[in-house]
C-alpha cells in the first residue's frame, strides 16, 4: 500500500493533472471564437491588456468592485494558497534556509519560513471555513451549491489540517524534512524511493494526490478558464477604416470654420 501511495500514485496524479488540464485547455482553445465579446471599457494596447489581466489575477479587481465582503476571503484564500505552494517549492528545496539568500542566518531563515508557513496555513484554513460557512448561510448560494462544492472545500481543509499538523505538534520532530526532500527529489528524478513512513506525512501527501487527480474535472479548472475568458473579454474591438472615410465625407464641413 505504501509502495502504491509513495511510488505509483504520484505518477498517476501528475499524469492525470497535467494531461487533464491540457485536455480541458485545448478543448477550449480549439473551439472557434468567431465574435469578439469585448467587455468595455477595454484596454486599448497589448501592454494595457496584459496589465488588466494581471490586475485581475493579482487583486481580483472585478470581485472587489462594489462589494468587498466575498473579495477579502476569496483573495485571502488564494494568496495564502500561492504562498503555500511557493513555500513548498523553495522551503523543501532549501530545507527552510531559502532566506539565507537574502542575508539571514540559517536559524532566522528557518524561523521566518515557519512563521510565513503558519500564517499562510492559518489564513488559508480560516478563509476556507468562512467560504464554507458562506455557502451554507446565504440562501441563494446554498441553493446553487452541489455536493462537489462542499467536497472541494473539505478536501482542501483536510490537506491544510494534515499539513499544519506536521508543523505545530511534536510530530515536527518526527517528520524529517531532509527525508522528504530526498523522497520528492527521487520522484522528480523518476527514481522513486520509499515514502517516509510518518502517517501524517503520508496522509497529507495522499490527499494532495487525490486533489491533483480530481482537479481537472472540477470547477477548480477556473484557474485556466480565468485566462481563456479574460483574453476573450479584453480582445480589441474590430476596427473599420474609420479615420480616412470620415475625413473624406466630412470635408468641407459647412459652418465649422466660421462658427468654430
Amino acid at each position: 500500500m505504501l509502495f502504491f501511495i509513495g511510488q505509483v500514485l504520484p505518477y498517476i496524479a501528475a499524469t492525470v493533472f497535467i494531461g487533464g488540464m491540457a485536455w480541458r485547455l485545448t478543448s477550449w482553445l480549439k473551439t472557434p471564437a468567431p465574435y469578439p465579446i469585448t467587455l468595455f471599457p477595454a484596454p486599448t494596447s497589448s501592454i494595457a491588456r496584459f496589465g488588466a489581466i494581471g490586475r485581475e489575477l493579482l487583486f481580483f479587481s472585478s470581485l472587489r468592485r462594489g462589494d468587498q465582503g466575498l473579495w477579502i476571503w476569496a483573495w485571502l484564500m488564494h494568496i495564502s494558497l500561492a504562498m503555500i505552494i511557493a513555500g513548498h517549492i523553495v522551503g523543501i528545496y532549501y530545507l527552510t534556509h531559502q532566506f539565507t539568500l537574502i542575508g539571514l542566518s540559517e536559524a532566522a531563515s528557518s524561523s521566518l519560513s515557519a512563521s510565513l508557513g503558519t500564517v499562510s496555513g492559518v489564513g488559508f484554513f480560516a478563509a476556507l471555513v468562512v467560504l464554507f460557512y458562506r455557502r451554507t448561510a446565504i440562501p441563494e448560494v446554498k441553493r446553487l451549491s452541489d455536493p462537489a462544492d462542499y467536497f472541494e472545500l473539505l478536501l482542501l481543509m483536510t490537506i491544510v489540517v494534515t499539513g499544519m499538523h506536521m508543523r505545530v505538534t511534536s510530530l515536527a520532530e518526527e517528520v524529517n524534512l531532509v527525508d522528504i526532500r530526498t523522497y520528492l527529489g527521487g520522484l522528480l528524478a523518476l527514481r522513486p524511493v520509499p515514502i517516509p513512513e510518518q502517517w501524517i506525512f503520508v496522509s497529507h501527501f495522499f490527499l494532495v494526490n487525490v486533489l491533483l487527480i480530481y482537479l481537472p474535472f472540477s470547477k477548480m479548472v477556473h484557474m485556466a478558464g480565468f485566462f481563456v475568458n479574460r483574453i476573450l473579454l479584453t480582445k480589441p474591438a474590430p476596427s473599420y477604416p474609420v479615420q480616412g472615410a470620415v475625413d473624406r465625407v466630412a470635408a468641407p464641413v459647412k459652418g465649422v470654420s466660421s462658427n468654430g
Partner: peptide
C-alpha cells in the same frame, strides 16, 4: 463558440 464553453465550465458558483 468558445465563449459559451468556457463560461459554462468556469463558474465556481460563488454567488
Amino acid at each position: 463558440l468558445r465563449s459559451l464553453v468556457v463560461m459554462l465550465e468556469t463558474c465556481t458558483k460563488c454567488g
